[in-house]
Amino acid sequence: MTSGLDLTDVRKGFGGAPVLDGVSLSVAPGEIVSLIGPSGSGKSTLLSLLTGALAPESGRMLFDGAPMTGRARPVAYMPQRDALLPWRRALDNAAVGLEVAGVRRREARQQADALFDTFGLQGTQDRYPRQLSGGMRQRVSLLRTVVQKKPLLLLDEPFGALDAITRDDLQMWLLNIWAVHRWSILLVTHDIREAIRLSDRVHVLSSRPGRLVGEVQVSRDIPRDDRFFADPRIAPLEGRLHDMLRAGSHRD
């Protein structure tokens, strides 16, 4: 039986125009897999298929060997923007996903509150989103995703709207907290360096229409610290991904 996420020949189009044209990929338990590609290549569409917001036209979507159908999915989704509700305090925002899933408000708040220290947010529970920095807002958003205790996290450009220094800090923070919890993650990003730094594998999606045109593996033997990009094994990976991305951006 297949363990983790397994997509085979998944296809989706709109108005007769194909957007995803036979995508096959997998995410093993405890693995971080990134998906990069030009705008319009179908990255967000793929995430929408996984959450159940859209249905595939054909292909197979399995998790732990079982078809991914219906509203109950083994995934938790973190959108590109933090999407925090401005009228709710940080703790209430972190608990909202559990409440939507049917958990009573008091219990949802307790479960979320238990993670605030781990996420570097202790003392911010009663702050409104406008009182939080961009980095803190993203941590609350990720906490809201993680607290749902789903086996697969879908992260849609989680750090794309942040400045370079904050983005770098949160990448390292995510790696450190992932090393403890070993979540399975499918990450969508436009940033090649972010994809390499965070991932075990990086897939490249073309726009002709959305097809996977290549994959790069990144060894966990390379320390994911401040010296990561100085490692001589990284530059060739960047070059290969640049070439794949450039080739995948050319339309037939």
Rank of each mutant, 00 (worst) to 15 (best):
E31K: 00
P151Y: 10
V100Q: 07
F116R: 03
A95L: 09
R89Y: 03
T8L: 01
E57R: 01
R233Q: 14
L143R: 12
L50K: 00
F116C: 05
K12G: 00
G13Y: 10
S24W: 09
P56W: 00
L121F: 02
L170Q: 14
L132E: 04
D200E: 05
G135C: 06
A195R: 03
R137H: 04
S26W: 02
K43V: 00
P74G: 05
A53K: 05
F119P: 11
V23I: 09
M172V: 07
D243E: 12
H250N: 09
P223Y: 12
K43L: 02
R105V: 11
M68N: 04
L162C: 08
A28K: 07
G102V: 12
G123Q: 12
D226A: 15
A55S: 13
S58R: 15
V204P: 00
S48I: 02
E99I: 14
V33L: 03
L187A: 07
L84G: 03
I192Q: 05
G15T: 05
E157R: 14
G13R: 14
G52S: 03
D225H: 11
D168L: 12
F228R: 13
S133G: 11
A164W: 15
D6R: 15
A230E: 15
P129D: 09
A179H: 15
M78S: 13
K150D: 03
G120T: 06
L35T: 02
D156S: 10
M68P: 02
G214Q: 01
R130Q: 13
E99F: 10
L62W: 03
M68T: 08
T45F: 00
A76T: 12
I165E: 04
Q138R: 15
V23P: 01
A114M: 03
L25H: 05
A114L: 07
K43E: 01
I192K: 07
V23F: 03
R130N: 05
L7K: 08
E57A: 10
I222C: 03
A101E: 14
T118M: 08
Y128F: 12
D231Y: 14
T124D: 11
L50T: 00
A179P: 11
S26G: 09
A90Y: 09
D231S: 14
A72Y: 06
T189A: 06
F63T: 01
L143C: 12
E194Q: 11
V100A: 14
L7F: 01
P158L: 08
R81N: 13
V75F: 15
Y128M: 15
Y128A: 07
I196M: 06
G30K: 04
D9N: 15
A17G: 02
G15C: 08
R251I: 10
F14Q: 05
K43P: 00
R105E: 13
D156M: 08
K149H: 13
P67T: 13
G210Y: 02
A161T: 14
S219M: 12
W87Y: 11
G42D: 04
G214C: 05
E157Q: 11
H242E: 10
A179C: 08
F229L: 11
R105P: 06
H181C: 04
L62Y: 06
Q111P: 00
Q217Y: 05
G65M: 09
Q171A: 01
W178L: 11
V202Y: 01
W178I: 04
G22N: 02
Q110D: 15
P56Q: 09
G30V: 10
R71Y: 01
T69R: 14
M1W: 04
H242A: 08
R201F: 02
E157Y: 08
I177T: 15
T189V: 05
V33S: 00
A55H: 10
I185K: 00
R240C: 02
